[in-house]
Write a protein that binds this DNA or RNA. Structure first.
Lengths: 350, 350
DNA sequence: TTGTATGCGTTATCAC
DNA sequence: GTGATAACGCATACAA
């Protein structure tokens, strides 16, 4: 009916108070007498006023309560990664103290009208990884004084990062295998770059993806000569494919396989069983991430547990700090080694 | 250094034009002479002005470009559901034409500062499922004139819904089994309610979750007497647990199991193998959803393929229509039966 | 405790 | 093609 939505001024007028008083009733920032409050509330009810318009409030306050999360990939792919999901969980918690929520943003601008880093009313932005395409928008955002944090990526000078000790962690798993006496070890890695077709890594391959490179380096710190097969993605199916390649390779089968993710490790275990090898008696397998792999029971992976949730929380805290005018502080999180039942002494087979 | 961020008025002044002209240069809504444009752009560059402030723009336009997506559960759980992920993908596409992005919102208000349906600057809201807790916020949102759409839930009168023909679809799968000659059939269902502990369903159980009830009804349309075991969640591990219960039950084992999700079906298949039964020779298994189950190869589930992405797209379209002043229109999407290699004629065992 | 005044930064509308 | 004007709806500093 009404030609126009009621505003706080309307409410104030109806209640016979000033707009600022009415405002205060809703924000609670200043004491108000009970009588005034109830008059205002009554007026609000009468007019169908449901509280301050968030758009106007955000202009006035200079805060929208929205933190953008930018992913490199398609959303569907992103959320197929259990680690990213955990990270999002942590991020949700991490920005809650700010009174903020997460706005999903895609890196690629292609979709016509889709909101971007530059057009959305963001208080801050969190980049997950950081591909090249982003750089220009990033400059705009920073120029505007919006805090930016990068999780596992490099967004350039002055942008705080949340990183993982991938190399050291993977190296620890490798050392564990060496202590168990393993010498013939194979590696199963994540993709070397976007669009990677699975296959053995040769010395000549460039590795575009940091995580892959760092974890590979960590394994090579202990086993410099270990052959490495790079999967097309982090999934059980790809792990099976990689495992088949590994166990089908010429010569005696490896006694241990270091996989760069738990999902890949799960696939490698399947492939081992398929090849008639028992885990861990005939072949030890390690993963990376420390997630719960659905359907893997009764195996419990020996793996590196990464603080996935904490990555998100840390990013949230970093953002909060910057919003408070604090200094950007990068953070290196560490993974914890966890022994499961998928590794055993070399030659342990009965 | 500057005490204050440059505004479009500053740019206009520096360029020697009016604010409205400068505005038009950035919005492109009105033709501007090349000379004026470049003067404005130069001024902007000089002042470090990076474009209109989205907060102010959204106040003026009355649109924020943000659509809230409200989940009943914790984010982590939500995104463990492959169907929801696909739906989110579709929703992202669906709202893109609006120039909108998705803001993740949780149903439960508990977290102190977290933004809510009522405090976030939303153009529209999409509810995924709809628990009771939501109702009050919902009234506020609707009172404000913000379009709301519900995906697979009932949010009350006048709120358009996007639904699935769960009962009919499940009934089709059951009919398929009947055609194959199966008589001893067991059902494995989704939880009956939040916090459900797995177990056999007795006649006395109330079923709070619509999907569970509808799919159960569909199965019972064909097999009224089939025993049903309700799992605690939709996962392979829970499917294994359910399958064990089913195959351990007294009497001859069922020759077919209808599971209410693909993940559960995958678990049931594992449990069958564990029990020494071959799929599909000794026991047929059907799923529901039509997702790709990682690690299930070489099995291809006989299942009902639900239009998960389309659910999201449809919701996006509905929102767009309402924003254009159109009428809310509910939609019933249908699932497609897909035969895989996990069902066979009863008694087909060699 | 309440009211007054002002501005947050933009853009729609209309006249020129 | 350009400019003047007027909101958009609110929250804060400050005065009363």
């Amino acid at each position: 009916m009404s030609t126009r939505r009621a505003t706080i001024s309307d409410v104030a007028r109806t209640a016979g108070v000033s707009p600022s008083t009415a405002s205060v009733v809703f924000s609670g920032k200043t004491p108000v007498s009970d009588e005034t409050r109830s008059r205002v509330l009554a007026a609000a009810a009468e007019l169908g006023y449901t509280g301050p318009d968030p758009r106007a409030a955000s202009l006035r306050r200079g805060r929208s309560g929205i933190v953008g999360v930018v992913f490199e990939e398609h959303l569907g792919r992103t959320f197929q990664d259990p680690v990213k999901i955990l990270m999002m969980d942590g991020l949700t918690d991490g920005v809650a103290p700010l009174g903020a929520g997460l706005l999903l943003l895609r890196d690629r601008d292609d979709t016509d009208g889709a909101p971007t880093l530059t057009t959305a009313p963001l208080d801050a932005a969190v980049l997950v990884g950081c591909s090249g395409m982003l750089r220009e928008s990033l400059d705009v955002v920073r120029a505007r004084g919006i805090p930016v944090v990068v999780i596992e990526g490099d967004a350039g000078e002055g942008i705080p990062r949340i990183d993982l000790d991938n190399r050291a962690a993977q190296s620890r798993a490798a050392a564990h295998l060496r202590e168990l006496g393993h010498e013939r070890v194979a590696l199963v890695t994540l993709p070397l770059r976007a669009g990677w077709a699975p296959g053995w890594i040769t010395g000549a391959d460039d590795i575009d993806i940091d995580v892959t490179r760092d974890r590979l380096d960590g394994a090579r710190d202990v086993y410099p000569q270990a052959p490495a097969y790079a999967a097309a993605a982090s999934s059980i199916d790809e792990g099976v494919a990689a495992g088949r390649a590994v166990f089908a390779a010429a010569g005696p089968h490896p006694t241990a396989v270091l996989a760069q993710s738990d999902l890949l490790a799960a696939g490698v275990i399947r492939a081992a069983e398929e090849a008639g090898l028992r885990v861990p008696e005939d072949v030890s397998v390690t993963g990376f991430d420390g997630i719960v792999v659905d359907g893997l029971a009764p195996y419990e992976l020996t793996t590196l547990v990464q603080p996935a949730v904490e990555k998100g929380r840390a990013a949230g805290r970093a953002v909060a700090a910057m919003l408070d005018g604090g200094e950007p502080a990068s953070l290196l999180l560490t993974c914890a080694f966890r022994a499961g039942n998928t590794t055993a002494r070399a030659g342990a087979a009965g």
